[in-house]
Each structure stands twice: as structure tokens, then as C-alpha cells.
């Protein structure tokens, strides 16, 4: 009885939260299918007075650029997520081991990167001059791999708290190598955190426009988010700088196009999201321990 009450309470809270989160998206989607003139004269609305797919057909007209951008986004996201996850887990596991020599110093080495950075210009120079990555796919993947060590600390904490030291020790005594322990025992026990970090990395890569803005000037390497961001930032720039009154605003894309770009930027992420969620299923860890 009490349990049921609990469930009702929890569900009603989430229904309210879900509505709050969904409403703006409904608005976003609806604006993307509203006629341009209607947005300007009647404002954004949940039920547009004049429907129009003009924005999407405008984007469809540029389909080669759009599909190319999707391709870039997908390649970068898949490669980046995979490599990032592998490097992070490999680095986090030893740091989670209490018996590792110099553990604190090494942790500090990782942690320090979260607080200090050399700034944009030196980083840019290292990547473009030393590694010659300007205008390459690498430049979209590499700078985001460890996201400044942030995820390493999360994985380390999970390893330290959720992997019983006894099973590692007993495996070691049984003669298993460290790599084997890591691969056969630690990783399977850590699916929840790996899925979480994998999801975070995916989101980061999918939504990244900054590296594209900095390291890429070649339009064939623009990702979806990079295209969207450039469009929006250009509009803002033109609005707020008068350039001696030069006429440049005529080339700004329409409201509905901006919204349609945002919609097609999010959609695929929504589609792969359930795939990650599979791993959040409760009991996965515990089942394995028992």
C-alpha cells in the first residue's frame, strides 16, 4: 500500500518534470514547420497558424552538404567515443588501485589538468604546428578524447567503490595477469559507468562545435553542430556589429531554418540514446558480484 503511494508520488513528479523538459522541444519542432512570415508576425506557437515545410526543403536543397556533415559527425562521434573510452578506462583503473606506487601524484597529474590549461592559442599551436592537424578529421577527434581528465576521475571512483578488492587479489594470486584481470573481471563489472561515460562522450562529440570552429576552415569537414553554430553565431555577429553600415544582413537564414537545423541536429542522438540505456539496468553489477 505504502509502496503504491510512493510509486504514484514518484510518477507524478516525473510527469511534471517531463512536461517541463518536453515543452520547449515541442515549440522548437513546431517553429521549424511554421511559415517564416507567420513566425515573424504571430510569434512562435505550439500550433502554428500556417504550416510550412519550407525550412526542411531549404535544407534538402543543400543535401550534399547536410549528408556530408552528418557523415563527419558520425565518424567523429564513433571513433572519438571508442578511443576516448578505452584510454580513460586504461588510465582510471590503475589509479583506482590503492596499492599502486605514486598513486596520489599520478592522480594529481590528472586532476591538475582540470584546473589549469595553457589557453587556446598554445593548444592550437601545438596541434597545428607540432602535429599538423589543421583541417583534418584528427583535429575533431583528438582534442576531446579525455575531456581534461574529468571522466577519468569518475571511472576511477567507480572502480574503487564498486569492484571488490578481494576478487582482484584472488585472481592475481591465481596467476592472472593484470591485463587479464582488467579485461575479464573489471570491465564486465563496470558496465554502468562505462555506459555512462560512453554516453557522455557521445554527447560531447555529437554536440561539439568548438573544435570545428577552431581547427577547421574546410567546409567539407564541417559537422552538423558546426554548421548550426556558425549560422547562429554569424547572425548574432551581424546583429551586434554595424561594420560602418555595410549591408550584410540580407544573407541571414530564416528563423524556421535555424530551428530545423537544431531539430535535425538532435534527432539521431535521440535515436541512439535507448541503446545506451540498456546498460543502466539495475542489478547488472550486483548480479555479477554474487
Amino acid at each position: 500500500m505504502k509502496n503504491q503511494m510512493n510509486q504514484i508520488f514518484v510518477h507524478s513528479v516525473f510527469i511534471v518534470l517531463a512536461a517541463l523538459c518536453l515543452f520547449p522541444f515541442l515549440l522548437l519542432f513546431m517553429s521549424s514547420v511554421t511559415e517564416e512570415a507567420s513566425i515573424i508576425s504571430n510569434g512562435y506557437s505550439i500550433w502554428p497558424s500556417v504550416f510550412s515545410l519550407e525550412a526542411y526543403s531549404y535544407l534538402w536543397n543543400q543535401k550534399s552538404a547536410m549528408f556530408n556533415a552528418y557523415g563527419i559527425t558520425i565518424v567523429v562521434t564513433v571513433v572519438g567515443t571508442f578511443v576516448g573510452l578505452v584510454i580513460s578506462a586504461l588510465l582510471a583503473y590503475p589509479l583506482s588501485r590503492n596499492d599502486l606506487p605514486m598513486r596520489r601524484s599520478l592522480s594529481f597529474l590528472v586532476f591538475f589538468t582540470l584546473l589549469f590549461n595553457g589557453g587556446l592559442v598554445p593548444t592550437y599551436l601545438i596541434y597545428t604546428e607540432v602535429f599538423e592537424m589543421k583541417n583534418t578529421l584528427m583535429s575533431l577527434v583528438v582534442p576531446g578524447l579525455l575531456t581534461n581528465g574529468f571522466f577519468i576521475l569518475l571511472i576511477r571512483t567507480f572502480f574503487a567503490n564498486s569492484i571488490p578488492v578481494q576478487i582482484i587479489e584472488s585472481a592475481y594470486i591465481d596467476g592472472a595477469s593484470e591485463f587479464k584481470i582488467f579485461y575479464r573481471m573489471v570491465l564486465p563489472l563496470s558496465l554502468p559507468i562505462l555506459a555512462t561515460i560512453g554516453l557522455m562522450l557521445t554527447i560531447n562529440y555529437w554536440n561539439d562545435w568548438f573544435n570545428g570552429l577552431i581547427y577547421v576552415t574546410e567546409p567539407s569537414l564541417f559537422s552538423i553542430q558546426n554548421l548550426l553554430n556558425r549560422m547562429l553565431v554569424n547572425i548574432q555577429f551581424l546583429q551586434q556589429n554595424n561594420l560602418g553600415g555595410q549591408n550584410v544582413t540580407a544573407s541571414m537564414p530564416m528563423n524556421s531554418v535555424r530551428m530545423a537545423m537544431a531539430v535535425i541536429g538532435i534527432l539521431p542522438l535521440l535515436l541512439i540514446y535507448p541503446f545506451f540505456q540498456k546498460y543502466f539496468v539495475k542489478g547488472l553489477t550486483i548480479g555479477a558480484v554474487k
Binding site: 584510454i87 580513460s88 586504461l90 588510465l91 583503473y93 590503475p94 589509479l95 588501485r97 599502486l100 599520478l106 597529474l109 590528472v110 589538468t113 589549469f116 590549461n117 595553457g118 589557453g119 592559442v121 598554445p122 593548444t123 599551436l125 601545438i126 607540432v130 602535429f131 583528438v142 582534442p143 578524447l145 579525455l146 581534461n148 581528465g149 577519468i152 595477469s177 593484470e178 591485463f179 582488467f182
Partner: peptide, 24 residues
Amino acid sequence: ALFLMMVPGIVYLIINNYMPMFGV
């Protein structure tokens, strides 16, 4: 073995984070 595991990550941090710090 544990140190070996950490090599890719540490090298990465050195390139991505520590080398540019010189830029301060």
C-alpha cells in the same frame, strides 16, 4: 602492467594539457 596501461592516457595529457601550459 598497470603502468603500461596508463601510458596512452598520460602521453595524451602531456600533449593536450601540459605542453600548452607553457603558454601562460
